[in-house]
């Protein structure tokens, strides 16, 4: 019974993460995208925390806390400032229509389900579900990176992808702390570097539109 509840809650939370990913896919404005991303991080934090509780692995609470603090609060706020300063928060920047994006997203989720459930037949059901959802989030994140034209939204998409990774790591029973640290570490570095880049890019281009960057692409022969 206890096991069933554990499973249901974990399932719900992981599914929630996928749902929020879809919501991100649905956003057309940067500011709302950031808000949804914050929600994404919150769900992630909850999910990780639940895993920590279920697995009896207290170090996962740290991960959850980091996710909550960093991704749900600090980063969205910082990015929001940037987009306000740049005046691009209303920008519509998808490559193809929302409907199509949702459809493709569905396909990706189906793919990861089909793949993961079949592959992880020997793992615990909890881990299976978790992993399947994580893969969905990762793929959705990747797709979002591909379908957004704006650098900020690409960064957000990338972070949602990382959220999926953390979900997977947390779902893997007894995965050593090393991984969480490294994830946090990489996110940190990633953010710093991106910050530096954005700063420099802004310095030069007055826009964070990746297309402007593209105009300097290597050589054109």
């Amino acid at each position: 019974m206890q096991h069933g509840l554990n499973y249901d809650v974990a399932h719900m939370l992981a599914g929630g993460l996928v749902l929020v990913s879809f919501m991100m896919l649905y956003q057309v404005r940067l500011s709302s995208l950031l808000r949804v991303f914050a929600a994404h991080a919150v769900v992630l934090a909850l999910s990780v925390a639940w895993q920590a509780y279920v697995q009896g692995a207290p170090h996962l609470f740290v991960t959850a806390a980091i996710a909550l603090l960093f991704k749900a609060l600090v980063i969205p706020v910082a990015l929001n400032r940037i987009i306000v300063r740049l005046g691009i928060y209303r920008e519509i920047e998808t490559v193809f229509g929302i409907g199509l994006a949702m459809l493709v997203g569905m396909g990706l989720v189906a793919l990861s389900m089909a793949l993961m459930l079949r592959v992880t037949a020997e793992a615990t059901p909890l881990a299976r579900e978790d992993l399947a959802f994580a893969l969905s989030v990762v793929l959705l994140g990747l797709m979002m990176m591909v379908t957004r034209r704006n650098a900020v939204s690409q960064v957000v998409a990338f972070m949602s992808l990382e959220n999926g990774l953390i979900l997977a790591a947390a779902g893997a029973q007894g995965m050593p702390l090393v991984v969480e640290i490294s994830v946090a570490f990489s996110v940190l570095i990633a953010f710093i570097v991106i910050g530096i880049f954005l700063f420099r890019i802004r310095e030069r281009f007055d826009t964070v539109n990746v297309q402007a960057l593209d105009s300097f692409r290597g050589e054109r022969s």
């Binding site: 990706l108 793949l115 797709m143 591909v146 990746v210 960057l213 692409r217 050589e219 022969s221």
Partner: peptide
């Protein structure tokens, strides 16, 4: 040589999805 970064990412994405589908 002259794709956008997004273009390159799409390449990665598409090939990954293809491969996963294949798998």
């Amino acid at each position: 040589q002259t794709l956008t970064i997004r273009g390159y990412l799409s390449l990665v994405f598409l090939s990954l999805v293809t491969l996963l589908t294949g798998l």
